[in-house]
Measured scan of single mutants.
Amino acid sequence: GRPPQPKSVEDLLDRINLKEHMPTFLFNGYEDLDTFKLLEEEDLDELNIRDPEHRAVLLTAVELLQEYDSN
Protein backbone atom coordinates (compact mmCIF):
# COMPACT_ATOMS: atom_id res chain seq x y z
CA GLY A 1 0.00 0.00 0.00
CA ARG A 2 0.98 3.57 0.55
CA PRO A 3 3.87 4.66 2.72
CA PRO A 4 2.82 5.63 6.24
CA GLN A 5 1.93 9.24 6.86
CA PRO A 6 4.94 11.38 7.73
CA LYS A 7 5.15 12.38 11.40
CA SER A 8 6.63 15.84 10.96
CA VAL A 9 7.59 18.44 8.40
CA GLU A 10 11.18 17.26 8.79
CA ASP A 11 10.15 13.66 8.16
CA LEU A 12 8.24 14.73 5.06
CA LEU A 13 11.06 16.86 3.63
CA ASP A 14 13.48 14.04 4.34
CA ARG A 15 11.37 11.63 2.28
CA ILE A 16 11.20 13.96 -0.71
CA ASN A 17 14.88 14.87 -0.39
CA LEU A 18 14.22 18.56 0.14
CA LYS A 19 15.51 18.87 3.68
CA GLU A 20 17.53 21.89 2.56
CA HIS A 21 14.28 23.87 2.80
CA MET A 22 13.65 22.87 6.42
CA PRO A 23 15.03 26.12 7.94
CA THR A 24 12.93 28.20 5.54
CA PHE A 25 9.74 26.39 6.51
CA LEU A 26 10.47 26.49 10.24
CA PHE A 27 11.45 30.15 10.16
CA ASN A 28 8.18 30.99 8.43
CA GLY A 29 6.00 29.10 10.88
CA TYR A 30 5.50 25.80 9.05
CA GLU A 31 6.31 23.84 12.17
CA ASP A 32 3.75 21.09 11.80
CA LEU A 33 2.03 19.18 9.05
CA ASP A 34 -1.32 20.87 9.71
CA THR A 35 0.24 24.15 8.66
CA PHE A 36 2.36 22.62 5.93
CA LYS A 37 -0.60 21.08 4.17
CA LEU A 38 -2.11 24.55 3.61
CA LEU A 39 0.89 25.43 1.44
CA GLU A 40 0.05 26.89 -1.97
CA GLU A 41 2.02 28.20 -4.91
CA GLU A 42 1.78 31.80 -3.70
CA ASP A 43 3.32 30.69 -0.41
CA LEU A 44 6.26 29.22 -2.28
CA ASP A 45 6.78 32.61 -3.92
CA GLU A 46 6.82 34.24 -0.51
CA LEU A 47 9.21 31.61 0.83
CA ASN A 48 11.42 32.32 -2.17
CA ILE A 49 11.43 28.70 -3.28
CA ARG A 50 11.88 29.22 -6.99
CA ASP A 51 13.11 25.89 -8.33
CA PRO A 52 10.20 24.59 -10.46
CA GLU A 53 11.07 20.98 -9.67
CA HIS A 54 11.19 21.62 -5.92
CA ARG A 55 7.89 23.49 -6.12
CA ALA A 56 6.22 20.63 -7.98
CA VAL A 57 7.47 18.05 -5.49
CA LEU A 58 6.38 20.16 -2.50
CA LEU A 59 2.91 20.77 -3.89
CA THR A 60 2.50 17.07 -4.66
CA ALA A 61 3.49 16.29 -1.07
CA VAL A 62 0.84 18.75 0.15
CA GLU A 63 -1.80 16.98 -1.95
CA LEU A 64 -0.79 13.62 -0.50
CA LEU A 65 -1.06 15.00 3.04
CA GLN A 66 -4.55 16.23 2.30
CA GLU A 67 -5.45 12.78 0.97
CA TYR A 68 -4.25 11.08 4.15
CA ASP A 69 -6.58 13.42 6.00
CA SER A 70 -9.66 12.71 3.96
CA ASN A 71 -9.33 8.93 4.43
Score class of each variant (00 low, 15 high):
Gly1Asp: 15
Arg2Gly: 07
Arg2Thr: 10
Pro3Asp: 15
Pro4Phe: 15
Pro4Asn: 14
Gln5Thr: 09
Gln5Arg: 10
Gln5Ser: 09
Gln5Met: 12
Pro6His: 05
Lys7Val: 11
Ser8Lys: 03
Ser8Ile: 04
Ser8Arg: 02
Val9Pro: 05
Val9Trp: 00
Val9Ser: 02
Val9Ala: 02
Glu10Gln: 08
Glu10Met: 08
Asp11Trp: 03
Asp11Pro: 01
Asp11Tyr: 04
Leu12Gln: 05
Leu12Asn: 03
Leu13Gly: 03
Leu13Arg: 03
Leu13Asp: 03
Asp14Pro: 02
Asp14Thr: 12
Arg15Thr: 11
Arg15Tyr: 09
Ile16Gly: 05
Ile16Phe: 10
Ile16Ser: 07
Ile16Leu: 14
Asn17Gln: 09
Asn17Gly: 14
Asn17Leu: 01
Leu18Thr: 04
Leu18Gly: 01
Leu18Pro: 00
Leu18Lys: 03
Lys19Leu: 14
Lys19Thr: 13
Lys19Tyr: 06
Glu20Arg: 06
Glu20His: 07
Glu20Asn: 08
Glu20Met: 10
His21Ile: 07
His21Gly: 02
His21Val: 05
Met22Val: 13
Met22Ala: 13
Met22Gln: 09
Met22Pro: 00
Pro23Asn: 14
Pro23Ala: 14
Pro23Val: 08
Pro23Cys: 11
Thr24Ser: 07
Thr24Leu: 09
Thr24Met: 08
Thr24Cys: 07
Phe25Pro: 01
Phe25Lys: 03
Phe27Ala: 15
Phe27Tyr: 14
Asn28Arg: 05
Asn28Val: 00
Asn28His: 14
Asn28Glu: 05
Asn28Leu: 02
Gly29Arg: 01
Gly29Leu: 01
Gly29Lys: 00
Gly29His: 02
Tyr30Glu: 07
Tyr30Gln: 01
Tyr30Val: 10
Tyr30Trp: 12
Asp32Phe: 03
Asp32His: 11
Leu33Thr: 02
Asp34Ala: 11
Asp34Gln: 11
Thr35Lys: 15
Thr35Pro: 01
Thr35Ile: 05
Phe36Ser: 04
Phe36Leu: 09
Phe36Gln: 04
Lys37Asp: 03
Lys37Asn: 03
Leu38Asp: 11
Leu38Glu: 13
Leu38Gln: 14
Leu38Thr: 15
Leu38Cys: 12
Leu39Val: 08
Leu39Ser: 02
Leu39Thr: 03
Glu40Tyr: 02
Glu40Val: 12
Glu40Gly: 14
Glu41Gln: 07
Glu41Cys: 07
Glu41Met: 06
Glu42Asn: 12
Glu42Ser: 14
Asp43Ile: 06
Asp43Ala: 09
Asp43Thr: 11
Asp43His: 10
Leu44Asn: 02
Leu44Met: 04
Leu44Thr: 01
Leu44Val: 03
Asp45Gln: 06
Asp45Val: 11
Asp45Tyr: 07
Leu47Cys: 06
Asn48Glu: 14
Asn48Tyr: 00
Asn48Leu: 04
Ile49Asn: 00
Ile49Phe: 02
Ile49Ser: 01
Ile49Tyr: 01
Arg50Met: 14
Arg50Cys: 13
Arg50Ile: 11
Arg50Lys: 13
Arg50Tyr: 13
Asp51Asn: 11
Asp51Leu: 05
Asp51Phe: 00
Pro52Leu: 05
Glu53Tyr: 06
His54Lys: 07
His54Leu: 02
Arg55Asn: 01
Arg55Leu: 00
Arg55Tyr: 00
Ala56Arg: 15
Leu58Asp: 09
Leu58Ala: 06
Leu59Trp: 02
Leu59Met: 13
Leu59Gly: 07
Thr60Met: 08
Thr60Ser: 15
Ala61Gln: 12
Val62Leu: 05
Val62Ile: 11
Val62Arg: 09
Val62His: 06
Glu63Cys: 07
Glu63Pro: 04
Glu63Lys: 15
Leu64Gln: 15
Leu64Arg: 15
Leu64His: 15
Leu64Lys: 15
Leu65Ser: 04
Leu65Cys: 06
Gln66Val: 06
Gln66Pro: 05
Gln66Cys: 08
Gln66Ser: 09
Glu67Gly: 11
Glu67Asp: 13
Tyr68Met: 13
Tyr68Gln: 15
Asp69Ile: 02
Ser70Phe: 07
Ser70Leu: 00
Asn71Arg: 14
Asn71Ser: 13
Asn71His: 13
Asn71Glu: 14
Asn71Phe: 11
Asn71Val: 13
Asn71Cys: 13
Asn71Met: 12
Asn71Ile: 11
